[in-house]
Design a protein around this nucleic acid. Structure first.
Lengths: 352, 352
DNA sequence: ATGAAAGCGCTAACAT
DNA sequence: ATGTTAGCGCTTTCAT
């Protein structure tokens, strides 16, 4: 028999099951199951026999069956608005890394920023019986919230705060972020402002808060360019062009352009360079996210740093604690944000 | 009974099963199953009764059980090297969109560019009994290939070509891409070249092919800067800095810097701007990917366009055809690439 | 430390 | 068009 291929892995026979392995190893199926799931409870001699049988047969576990019986799928669903928006990449990567370490797998759903679509998605997701769900944002349909609560599945909402989370929550305040940017720029002496934004709900909330704060300080004339979809460099270029075309104020005072995304801000910097406008002397630019490129644009981009990786890691961690502590751990975590001052703002106007 | 909450959705009772729905609707469980999976085979009157019972109970399908019984999970696993590398975003998005349309869900695995890790990942993935697997690249361990073949699961490899695919394949030739870039730049009159690359296997193959082609034409002195990990803007800045520092040739002939990624190329453009080097007069820059920003940098980036969305859509389509045609459809598809000439190359040297 | 029996929730296959 | 029977492959539970 030596030299034979391991039990005809290429034949059309019925797929190998745990019972096949058990038969070959001369033990009960349950013992094989234990070897796979709680190896410590099996004598090492037995474990070895089983191990060999698994290799010989080329057995692959069927977690569909395991999950059905045990009601533990070891699956976590992650719902994101868009995979093409790099602002979420770090969060996703961190979630995936943390969960993979504990043997969980990620089922990814893309909601396209639409609550109705998210609701349908959740229906499909729940049918897979995930052990947990990580959502982006706190805006969900009532039906979604009801369904999730009824399913008694642990849920973590991310990227926002709300007084009424579905369950657990990791995020930061978009209102505070928008306000902080306004106050900072005012403190630096800027008096002329504009916004370039995409129409995602959280970005718009930051923009609103920014504008409101300026208004409280007597600055009311804030032009805005709002684009649909995922932030792009092109939006920044178009946005600045449009703003400059319509802006008739030739007072010479610098204009501070606040963007709801670093990517857009990068586009604004690019358009400024293309037009020979000096930054920050004649134009100040503020981004959002502190994505990897922000420190390396020319000039370097001032922005609001969000620790997406920390957010993802925290979300995964909360979920795991709940799942492993089989209890009530969890709650709400505000990871905050940080204003990062770089060359695209400030300059001669600093500390005025 | 009117006005009662729908059968106590918030109570701790056993979760609602298909049999519960059947009982309430006064039909057999199988009929409920048919309403869910092949509604056309059920009388509309019956369907309505069942529909009502589903709503009343708040029933959520259990696809774990369905998949176990029917051996169809409606799950497709997608393995990518890195989610933070935006070159793959479009492909992933397209895969996800296409599959979702047909009721499939995506299980995402991140391999981190490591074949051994990919192998472990595949083990876990196979245990979920996906109906198909979409891989990135064609470099897999022998064990991975054997396992995948033995599992008789449809596989699509993407982002590369190979004479010996595991099963189906959608990609393009990295050798041809590298060669095309070299020939194009030579034709434009460039004679001094440098490379800025990340150490991912496909990028390195393009770089090799580029260098080899130049050598065939008598150009042998190609400096290169190679970085580990995911491409970043910072790599481009650092890379150009390093190249300029070590480059002693002051002949005045323009240097053409070829990058294995648009992101890196963007960094090279940025460093050039920061140093006041004129592009393309004194420095030419070539990217790879034609990512969304490439047309909007300043100057606009010449690059190699890869239609990532087409690749993803094709991969998903091939898989679906195989799954639905229950047969042998599939094969190999070369989606090619296109050289895109923009402002960062050419200029005064064009057509010389 | 290991085994035997039972059943998770669904659908294939075969009636009617 | 609908129902009945059986069982997918595993793990819970209870024995030994």
């Amino acid at each position: 028999m030596a030299g034979m291929p391991p039990d005809n892995p290429d034949s059309f026979g019925a797929p190998v099951t745990l019972s096949d392995v058990a038969r070959l190893a001369g033990v009960a199926p349950m013992t094989v199951s234990r070897c796979l799931n709680q190896p410590d409870t099996v004598r090492s001699a037995t474990r070895l026999k089983v191990q060999r049988a698994i290799e010989q047969t080329g057995y692959v576990q069927n977690r569909l069956a395991g999950a059905l019986r045990s009601s533990r799928s070891r699956l976590v669903a992650v719902v994101m608005p868009m995979v093409t928006n790099p602002i979420f990449s770090d969060t996703f990567q961190a979630i995936n890394d943390r969960l993979a370490r504990d043997g969980y797998q990620v089922l990814l759903g893309v909601s396209g920023y639409e609550r109705e679509h998210e609701q349908e998605l959740l229906e499909v997701i729940l049918s897979r019986r995930p052990d947990g769900i990580i959502l982006t944002g706190t805006l969900h349909t009532t039906a979604s919230r009801t369904r999730l609560r009824a399913a008694r599945v642990p849920v973590v909402e991310t990227w926002d705060l709300t007084p009424e989370p579905i369950d657990m929550l990791v995020g930061f305040s978009h209102e505070q972020a928008g306000r902080a940017v306004a106050l900072q720029l005012l403190a630096q002496g800027y008096r002329r402002f504009a916004l370039v934004a995409v129409d995602d709900p959280r970005g718009l909330r930051r923009a609103e808060s920014f504008t409101r704060t300026l208004a409280e300080q007597g600055v009311v004339d804030v032009r805005r360019q709002v684009f649909p979809g995922t932030p792009t460099l092109a939006m920044g270029r178009l946005g600045l062009s449009a703003l400059l075309d319509e802006h008739t104020d030739q007072s010479g005072a610098p204009l501070a352009v606040v963007c709801t995304s670093d990517t857009i801000a990068h586009g604004v910097l690019t358009e400024a360079a293309a037009r020979g406008i000096r930054v920050p002397q004649h134009l100040a630019v503020m981004g959002f996210g502190d994505m990897s490129f922000a420190a390396h644009t020319f000039p370097a981009l001032s922005t609001v740093r969000i620790d997406g990786a920390l957010m993802g890691d925290t979300a995964a961690q909360m979920l795991l604690e709940r799942l492993q502590g089989q209890g009530s751990a969890g709650g709400v975590r505000d990871i905050g944000f940080t204003l990062v001052q770089r060359g695209s703002t400030g300059g001669p106007h600093s500390d005025r």
